[in-house]
Design a protein around this nucleic acid. Structure first.
Length: 489
RNA sequence: GGCCCGUUGGUCAAGUGGUCUAAGACACCGCCCUUUCACGGCGGCUACAGGGGUUCAAAUCCCCUACGGGUCACCA
C-alpha cells in the first residue's frame, strides 16, 4: 500500500535556514535566508528555520530571538521549525542529541567512526610539528586502530574520548554544486575529523548532516565559507547511505576592502538597518540583487516578484562588495513611494526620540505631521533622516554660515520680508503651498529683484539654512504665527 | 603555506563561441527643470587581470602566471 503523505513529501522541495544563535542576524545570513526562502517558495516547497546551537558557550536565547525578529521584520517567514513546529522537530540542535546519538552508534558499529583519546594538547603539538614541516595539519590517526587493552588503559587515565570519522584514504570527493559546478576534493586533505566532542555534543559538521537527512532537506543553499566543509559532510552522507541534497554555495558579501564583511565595515546586522529606518522591502530588494540577477531589466521587486523570478542558475559565482550607495538609492526610492500616512507613522518614533514632541502630541498633531512629512519626503534616504530634516519645523536653526549672514544683511531684505508678511496676512484663509509660491514670485516682480535675492533671505530668515525643503511647503506647514515669530514681527 | 573558489568600468552586474566597436543600474561629471538645495529628466566618463594556446571566429573553451577571497578548531 502506498503511503500518500510520505510520497508527497518525497517529492517536495525542502530548504532551511540554520543560523547559530551567537549574535544578531548578519546581512550575509539574511541573504542566505532569502535565497533559501525564495527558492523554496518558487518550488512551492517548505522553508524551515532550524537553530544550530551546539556551541553552548556562544549560543544564547537572546540571539535566537533577535534572529527571528529580524527574519519576521524582513518578511522572510518560515512554515516549519522553531515556534512553528512540524513533524521533523525538534528544531533546535541541543534538543536533538538523542537523534544524533543513534547515528553515532550506527557509525561506530559499522566502523565508520572511532573513539579518540588524544588530548587537546597532544593534538595541538602534533599540528605544530606538521605545520613546521609544511604538511597538512590533519589528525594522524593515532587512535584509529586502538586495541581494547589500550582503550581501557586510556580510560583509566581519566581521558574523555571524542569521536572521529574514519575518513577513507586516497579517495576523491566530488561535489556537484548548483552554482559552482563540479568541485573536487581529496579525502587525504580532510583527515579524521571530530564528529562528537568530548562533552558528548556533536560538532556542526555532523549535526547538520543528520538534521538535513532526518528533516528531508533537498537543497542546501549557504555561504561559500561552507564549501570547504562539504567534503566532510558528503562522507557522512555516504557512510549512512543517505540521499545527498543539492548543494548551492553562494559567494560571500565583502566590505569595501574586499574582505568578508565584518563589524569593522560598519553596520553588518539587519537590526542596524532596521533602527536606521531602512525599509524591509528595500533591504530585501537590495540583497536579492547582490549575487543574483533577474533575466530582464527590472530593478525593483517585491517579494512575490522575486519568488516568481528567482533561480539558482542566475546566482553569481563571484563575491559581491556591499554597496551602501545603492542600498541608499533603493531605500530612498521605496520611501518616496510610501504613502504619507505610512511614512508619518514610521517617522513618529524618531521624532519623539529626538525630543521634538511627545507621543500624545504626535497623535494629536497627526494631520500637521503628515503635511510636514510630505514636505520632506523626497529628501529622505532612510526614515532616521527625519530627525535632521524635520528639525527646522520645530525650531529655528542657527544661521548656517557667514555667507548666509551676508545674504541676510542685504539692504533689500527687510522689504522682502515685510512684503511676504503683508501678503500672507492679506488673505482670509491660510493659503495652499502653490499660492504661497505665487506670492513669493510676485515679490520678485513687485520689488524688481532677482529670484535669489528674494528666496534666499526668506529661507535663511525662516530656517537659518541655505538649503532645505521647498519654501512654500515650509511656510505652509509652520503657519503664519510661527513665520511672524521667526521674523520677529 | 596546503586545499578550494573567484577575476567584465569605482561598485552591483548582463553576457554560456559569431548579433560585443560589451546591456542596464548605483556612484561620479555635465546639461535641463527648479528663482537655492533636493526630487525629476537628458547626456557623458570609465571594463573583458596578463600571457599562451584551441578555433575561420573567444569576454565566452583549455593551460600558465598574477591578484583577490574562503578554509584549514573538541566554532558554526
Amino acid at each position: 500500500m502506498i503511503n500518500l503523505e510520505e510520497d508527497f513529501l518525497e517529492n517536495r522541495v525542502r530548504l532551511r535556514f540554520a543560523p547559530s544563535p551567537t549574535g544578531p542576524l548578519h546581512i550575509g545570513g539574511a541573504r542566505s535566508a532569502l535565497f533559501n526562502y525564495l527558492y523554496a517558495k518558487k518550488m512551492q516547497g517548505d522553508f524551515i528555520l532550524r537553530i544550530e546551537d551546539t556551541d553552548l558557550e556562544r549560543s544564547s536565547r537572546n540571539s535566537e530571538e533577535s534572529i527571528k525578529d529580524a527574519l519576521i521584520w524582513l518578511g522572510i517567514d518560515w512554515n516549519e521549525g522553531i515556534d512553528k513546529g512540524g513533524i521533523y522537530g525538534p528544531y533546535r540542535q541541543t534538543e536533538r542529541i538523542e537523534v544524533y546519538n543513534k547515528y553515532v552508534q550506527e557509525l561506530l558499529a559499522k566502523g565508520f567512526a572511532y573513539k579518540c583519546y588524544c588530548s587537546e594538547d597532544e593534538i595541538a603539538a602534533e599540528r605544530t610539528i606538521l605545520e613546521e614541516k609544511h604538511e597538512m595539519p590533519i589528525y594522524q590517526g593515532k587512535c584509529r586502530n586502538i586495541t581494547n587493552e589500550q582503550e581501557k588503559f586510556l580510560i583509566a587515565e581519566g581521558r574523555k574520548p571524542v569521536i572521529r570519522f574514519r575518513t577513507p584514504i586516497g579517495q576523491k570527493i566530488i561535489i556537484n554544486d548548483a552554482v559552482r559546478g563540479i568541485v573536487t576534493f581529496e579525502s587525504d586533505g580532510v583527515g579524521d575529523f571530530i564528529i562528537v566532542k568530548s562533552d558528548g555534543i556533536p560538532v556542526y559538521n555532523f549535526a547538520v548532516v543528520i538534521d538535513d537527512i532526518t528533516m528531508k532537506i533537498t537543497h542546501v543553499v549557504r555561504g561559500e565559507e561552507h564549501l570547504a566543509n562539504t567534503p566532510r559532510q558528503i562522507l557522512i552522507y555516504e557512510a549512512l547511505a543517505a540521499n545527498k541534497p543539492i548543494f548551492a554555495h553562494i559567494s560571500l558579501i565583502l566590505g569595501t576592502d574586499r574582505t568578508k564583511m565584518s563589524k569593522r565595515h560598519g553596520s553588518t546586522s539587519v537590526v542596524n538597518y532596521q533602527n536606521d529606518g531602512y525599509l524591509p522591502e528595500a533591504l530585501i530588494n537590495f540583497l536579492a540583487l547582490l549575487g543574483w540577477s533577474p533575466d530582464g531589466e527590472q530593478e525593483f521587486f517585491n517579494l512575490e516578484e522575486l519568488i516568481a523570478q528567482f533561480s539558482l542558475e542566475r546566482v553569481a559565482k563571484n563575491p559581491a562588495v556591499f554597496d551602501k550607495d545603492k542600498l541608499n538609492y533603493i531605500n530612498a526610492k521605496y520611501i518616496k513611494e510610501l504613502s504619507v500616512e505610512k511614512l508619518t507613522e514610521l517617522a513618529i518614533p524618531y521624532l519623539v526620540k529626538a525630543g521634538y514632541l511627545t507621543e500624545a502630541q504626535a497623535l494629536a498633531e497627526k494631520v500637521w505631521l503628515m503635511k510636514m512629512i510630505s514636505a520632506i519626503q523626497n529628501r529622505l534616504v532612510c526614515v532616521k533622516d527625519v530627525v535632521e530634516e524635520a528639525s527646522l519645523f520645530f525650531k529655528m536653526g542657527k544661521i548656517e554660515n557667514e555667507e548666509a549672514q551676508e545674504i541676510l544683511s542685504e539692504r533689500t531684505v527687510p522689504l522682502v520680508l515685510t512684503s511676504l508678511i503683508k501678503k500672507l496676512e492679506a488673505v482670509a484663509t491660510w493659503p495652499e503651498p502653490l499660492e504661497i509660491k505665487k506670492m513669493i514670485k510676485n515679490i520678485t516682480k513687485e520689488l524688481g529683484l532677482g529670484g535669489k535675492q528674494v528666496f534666499m533671505p526668506i529661507r535663511i530668515a525662516l530656517t537659518g539654512k541655505m538649503s532645505g525643503p521647498e519654501m512654500h511647503d515650509f511656510i505652509y506647514v509652520i503657519g503664519l504665527e510661527e513665520v511672524k515669530k521667526r521674523l520677529n514681527i
